[in-house]
Design a protein around this nucleic acid. Structure first.
Lengths: 222, 222
DNA sequence: TTAATTTGTTAGTCTAGGCTAACTTATTTA
DNA sequence: TAAATAAGTTAGCCTAGACTAACAAATTAA
């Protein structure tokens, strides 16, 4: 648990995200590989190593799971990532779509004091610029099961709670059409033939694709 | 010039520091190796690569020099390092001796915007917590030739201008005896048999070793 | 000016973390 | 339930950047 490489950390974080946010029952080697954009062979290698170090458990040909140790590492990374995003956004004039890439680098800086002091400096923010919860220094991680915009039905009304931060073009699109955190959204119509969704918010009516709606997380109001 | 690895950056920065701050006329393979705590063979390898990429020039068995490109990389790293040290010290409650290690990691984060915005956020500081000049965004680097405390003679009076930040125990010692930036120091006596130096500052009289005095940089007053 | 010492170079090895190609085991589906 | 497909594994190779051991060139000293 002392010193993991950047790659080892990346694998653990990715597995954690897939397990908690993906909604899938089984995460295997290939899903992890695809998520990280590496080959299944590379993943196999790394998983083997992380199993030997007791961060991952799995049976041969079976599904992957994290040990408590593994979860701890992943949550720390997510805490760091989101704190840095918040810092970049609130203090350094970074925009929504710029923060992720730099935070991906900053989350690997090894210094417990750095992240805790950054937290204090910003007065313990609860959510990052994309609406995601920031785990606290004890690793308490509030897993709110994600409800995607795409899972609602016609007539539902919801609030935009968070967005997936991993794609720059997606984030640009979100701000371009005028959606912002806490926007109230009404599902006007779901078109059956291509699953595209017509939504209304702030006197705007837009039609978005299923893929878009998959990356928008909401809180249902009615 | 696009994307260097962390190691490549480390070598370039180290060479730059040796060339500008070391006061030596010739920097060779072995000095660079020793400075970086790697073997001469590793250094040879890396130097070969950096020559191929046009960051370093040297003849076989000859002294090492940086190209303009190489200098630019090194100065940017120094700028980043010192800005981060300043941030850690002024905003995140880091102490003198804690900043260096974390800044060594932070200086490798790749984002031009990050460092320039950090600079703006802190209102363009001119010096870091150890008294060293911070190069500006254009890479203008004010090379003030360093005068070490050990180079003075009895009776000289000087001001503490900067200290070498690379050793934690050294920095602890500096603050422990009460020396601070801008302290006025008088050379009371230089003991010949071991080159130890007796200094007076702020009504304190202390004897320090030659090695200590080598790491203290001063501005001569009289 | 030759010998000793220092400095630089080369060759070969190691680890981390990628890759492709080939193969094996599970799972689907006809 | 057998064949097709998907998922997981293994073997072997590559690059970066370390290392040691052996050797060559320069420099210093006798």
């Amino acid at each position: 648990m002392i010193n993991l490489t950047k790659s080892e950390e990346d694998y653990l974080k990715a597995l954690f995200q897939l397990l908690t946010e993906g909604g899938k029952s089984k995460i295997g080697n290939n899903q992890l590989a695809e998520y990280l954009n590496v080959s299944p062979a590379s993943t196999n290698n790394m998983v083997k190593k992380l199993k030997a170090k007791d961060y991952i458990v799995s049976e041969r040909y079976g599904k992957l799971e994290l040990t408590d140790q593994g979860i701890e590492i992943a949550v720390r990374l997510i805490r760091k990532h989101r704190l840095w995003e918040t810092f970049l956004y609130n203090y350094l004039n970074f925009s929504w779509d710029e923060v992720h890439e730099v935070a991906e680098q900053l989350e690997h800086i090894k210094s417990r004091k750095l992240v805790d002091e950054l937290d204090r400096f910003m007065e313990y923010p609860k959510v990052d610029p994309h609406g995601e919860m920031i785990p606290d220094a004890d690793g308490a991680y509030n897993i709110t099961p994600k409800v995607t915009l795409s899972s609602l039905k016609e007539g539902d009304i919801c609030k935009l709670a968070a967005v997936n931060d991993a794609s720059v073009s997606f984030l640009r699109y979100v701000s371009q059409i005028g959606l912002a955190l806490s926007s109230t959204i009404e599902i006007v119509e779901i078109r059956d033939f291509d699953k595209s969704i017509c939504i209304r918010f702030d006197d705007t009516v837009e039609t978005v694709t299923k893929k878009f709606a998959d990356n928008v997380f909401v809180k249902i109001i009615s």
